[in-house]
Design a protein around this nucleic acid. Sequence first.
DNA 1: AGTGCGGCCTGTCCGC
DNA 2: TGCGGACAGGCCGCAC
Length: 276
Amino acid sequence: MPELPEVETTRRALLPYVRGERIAALLVRERRLRWPVPAGLEARTAGCVVAAIERRAKYLLLRLTRNGAAAGTLLCHLGMSGSLRVVRATEPPRLHDHVDLQLGNGRCLRLRDPRRFGCLLFIAGDPHAHPLLRGLGPEPLSAAFDGAHLAGLARGRSAPVKSFLMDGGVVVGVGNIYANESLWRAGLHPRRPAGRVARARWDRLANCVKEVLAAAIEKGGTTLRDFVRGDGEPGYFKIELAVYDHAGDPCPRCRQPIRVERIGQRSSFFCVSCQR
DNA sequence: AGTGCGGCCTGTCCGC
DNA sequence: TGCGGACAGGCCGCAC
């Protein structure tokens, strides 16, 4: 399940193989993703150069140029089962390999997404003005994300702090796993109403989010080779998780058993003893 | 405006 | 062993 660290790891892994390469052809085998892959995308992208790969939240942005001038952006989201890999153009596609971006260097950027929660869209103008990106909160690892930002938005909000933290308008890239881990690290009970979190605790939470995500990205760097080896699965890395999927296990801090409850339709793992 | 929830999908796991 | 059902997940879009 690609969360922000996985998406960023993917971006870094693809960059050396894709940046500056010409698109020989775009091949779409399955258009039915979260939104249909736009008709005519093949013609729009063929001959373009992938000038850069950026990331915004969990979206990857492939900046295209034609004759050196901006020619639009491919916007890709991996949903929860998606992966992007660089393979040799001759490698036969497997089940759920929906899109190939065939490159001039004999390689191929291959999108695989069994559950089809992901998307591949084209944006002609400024991608950050696109409805999907326009309303997003700050990047969690940027300076704009801090305790003051969280405290300001939380004023008067009754939603559980966990739901608040997973709201993309508040901060991007904090999915269920990292929300659980960050709240445990910060000692915050996931059900506490966001409007009733003391000011100093927002500073702590912001720092914990940054630490958890940065550590995961660092871990991802150790498995970069898996992404281009072209044999098996895209090497999602294992991260040591303190609470997520550890119901009943002892809390690493106080040894009390980890509880699991549903908050906002999501499984929430926490320690009743040291999260308040 | 804020909040909660349904729906999109398939692979995996569990119990019968 | 085979089968059905629950569940996991991000996140849009709707209803209140």
